[in-house]
Simulated assay, not measured.
Amino acid sequence: MDGTPACVNMKHIDVTKPAPFDGRDLIVCQTVFNKLQAQLRTVVDAEEANRIAAIIVDLYRQGIRDPEQLKVMIEAARGIFPSQSKRSG
């Protein structure tokens, strides 16, 4: 041994940075967004659509990967309740 620490060749992983977001992740998020949009049965303005999309991605990156759980959490966060949208149509 030459006195060099063994950990010199180890790769440093910054856990504060979000993991890469790939196509599979986008498919899950897009599917949830599409289901919510269809459920609302109305045209959501661009600002509200952007808010919903941002919340979906944020929750997904926090580890909520189940599409149904994501959908329920967005409904609660945005005040969208399935029973109300079914009654109005």
Score class of each variant (00 low, 15 high):
50 N>V: 10
50 N>K: 09
52 I>D: 07
52 I>Q: 02
53 A>P: 11
53 A>F: 10
53 A>V: 09
54 A>L: 14
54 A>V: 07
55 I>C: 13
55 I>A: 11
56 I>D: 03
56 I>V: 14
57 V>H: 05
58 D>Y: 11
58 D>Q: 10
58 D>L: 12
58 D>P: 06
58 D>I: 14
58 D>V: 11
59 L>H: 10
59 L>W: 09
59 L>M: 12
59 L>S: 06
59 L>A: 08
60 Y>N: 02
60 Y>D: 03
60 Y>I: 11
61 R>D: 05
62 Q>C: 08
63 G>V: 08
63 G>K: 01
64 I>T: 05
64 I>D: 02
65 R>H: 13
65 R>M: 07
67 P>E: 00
67 P>H: 14
67 P>F: 01
67 P>S: 01
68 E>Y: 06
69 Q>P: 00
69 Q>G: 00
70 L>P: 00
71 K>M: 02
71 K>Q: 11
72 V>N: 08
72 V>Y: 00
73 M>L: 10
73 M>T: 09
75 E>V: 02
75 E>H: 02
76 A>L: 08
77 A>Y: 06
77 A>Q: 15
78 R>L: 10
79 G>Q: 09
79 G>D: 05
79 G>C: 05
79 G>Y: 01
79 G>E: 01
80 I>R: 05
80 I>K: 04
80 I>M: 07
81 F>D: 12
81 F>T: 13
82 P>W: 09
83 S>Y: 02
83 S>L: 08
84 Q>S: 12
84 Q>T: 12
